[in-house]
Amino acid sequence: MRTLLIMLTLSLPPAVHAEAPGIVLIDGGDWELPIVREESTGPGRVDDFALDVRQVTNAEFVDFVRANPEWRRDRAPAIFRDTRYLSHWPRADALGEGNAAPDRPVTRVSWYAARAYCREMGGRLPTMTEWEYASERQREALGISPTDYAHQLFSWYANPGAGGLRPVAEGPASGLGIHDLHGLVLEWVEDFQLVLGRGDDIDLLTGSCGDTARFLPEFDEAHYATFLRFQSRSNYRPDTTTSTLGFRCAYNPE
């Protein structure tokens, strides 16, 4: 494991919020997505990148919305978000209880809104490859076996968000020093609209058993659990908002 961990403090535009979460630098490497695609070219290079230690919270997002009122739920252009965008907040610029509490991960945010937030913070959404790479490195760092990883994911995916969301980043950061990659809410990635082949002829949405098998390089539980995540991403549209989908930002290391 040659993942290098460096805790950094993110410099932020002062108007947005004063207290920044930490970010963690993740050392790149040669890696291939755990999914079989048409005309796969073999392992690619993942460059070093930095990632938020925790998911973006309601408190952070409401600060962003106050500073950028064009992202209020009553002002954001409809092309950038569906009708449920931030609908769990009691007001367009105020938080509440439960899943709308300040320390909960922000949910009901579209891909456009998540990208606008990260851009404001001087970052971007992680690419799918970066996110999956971090997930795999995290699993290794935590010493979780592929089978245990699969069982934990099956249990969570079966009923995400059940009983209300927990606050982000409870307890000490584990593994790579990252909180909640799995188990709290799913996360947007930059290129969530996975393309598996030329054009749209091969698409996860088609989802037949034969297709599913074709996408799995190995027929074990861990690959199937990971595949479920790809499949759920493939069902999103960029304006989609759901109660179990949030995000964190990534940054290019300087």
Binding site: R75, A76, P77, A78, I79, F80
Partner: peptide
């Protein structure tokens, strides 16, 4: 925003 809600010009 309804009139121009889905404009790519956004």
């Amino acid at each position: 925003e309804a009139a121009q809600g889905h404009s790519l010009f956004h």
